[in-house]
């Protein structure tokens, strides 16, 4: 077994990395597994535009390896992008988009790519990479405002994509979407929207072990993009369910 020998080398690069017949080499391993990952991204439409929220953690397996990863980025004038999943792949995507936006700008003819175009382009990129069995290991949230139109969409690792009034990747889809479905409404003020997102972030912080208490919020309106400085939320760990999680389920575990 040639590949088994490589395990020693692989282990030096990523502790716990196991090579298998499917992932015979270290580069194969990278193809099928993420290294450093970011967790959920949340996004929702509000009265004047779109806001996205994400924490700044970068997990190396179950180790919280990086704590200042920027996962929300502006793309051109009308779009913001948030990513969960492999950080290096996200940064590669940012390089693609940089090229795209610069090329778009170089026409210098007054036309520019909006969030809809960026979303569609990203979908093609993700879908093409999966067709080559070499996926970009991310879930992306695309938001933006152009010509008074708000836009919010999602693209998954293998090219699943859709639009909605609120979206969330990963754990967020399980834990935050239900809250957003209950509380979101079309003409939310910015303050209400931030409040809702922070409520969701807090739930995720409590229940998603990869989430960290250091967040950024990105806002886009017709006036442009603002990405907040990193900040933390006030937590309360004194809930009785946290103190004694198995209370009320005696004997089960």
């Amino acid at each position: 077994m040639e590949w088994a020998k490589d395990n020693i080398r692989a282990n030096a690069i990523a502790p716990g990395l196991i090579l298998t017949p499917l992932a015979k080499t270290v580069s194969d391993f990278h193809r099928w597994n993420p290294y450093v990952t970011g967790t959920s991204v949340l996004g929702l439409k509000y009265k004047d535009g779109i806001i996205l929220a994400a924490d700044m953690g970068g997990s190396y397996g179950s180790t919280l390896r990086y704590k200042s990863v920027e996962r929300l980025k502006p793309i051109g004038k009308h779009t913001i992008l948030g990513a969960s999943g492999e950080i290096s792949d996200f940064q590669e995507i940012l390089r693609y988009l940089d090229e795209l936006i610069i090329y778009d700008l170089m026409w210098d003819d007054g036309n520019s790519l909006g969030p809809k175009e960026v979303h569609s382009y990203l979908n093609r990129v993700m879908y093409n990479r999966r067709n080559k069995f070499n996926p970009l290991w991310n879930s992306l949230v695309v938001g933006g405002v152009k010509n008074g139109q708000k836009y919010l969409g999602m693209v998954g690792m293998i090219g699943t994509h859709y639009e909605d009034n609120h979206v969330a990747t990963g754990f967020g889809n399980h834990l935050a979407r239900p809250i957003m479905r209950a509380e979101w409404h079309e003409d939310m003020s910015f303050e209400d929207a931030v409040k809702l997102l922070e409520k969701c972030l807090l739930v995720l912080l409590y229940r998603d072990r990869s989430a960290i208490n250091k967040f950024q919020i990105a806002k886009i309106t017709k006036d442009g993009v603002t990405i907040s400085e990193p900040y933390a939320l006030k937590t309360f760990w004194g809930f009785s369910a946290f103190q004694n999680p198995s209370k009320g389920a005696e004997g089960s575990w």
Binding site: L22, W32, R130, N131, F133, P135, G156, I158, T160
Partner: peptide, 13 residues
């Protein structure tokens, strides 16, 4: 295709 994994597909119902 030895590398084909089931990850390339998803059933969205």
């Amino acid at each position: 295709m030895a590398l084909r994994g089931d990850w390339v597909y998803e059933n969205n119902g």
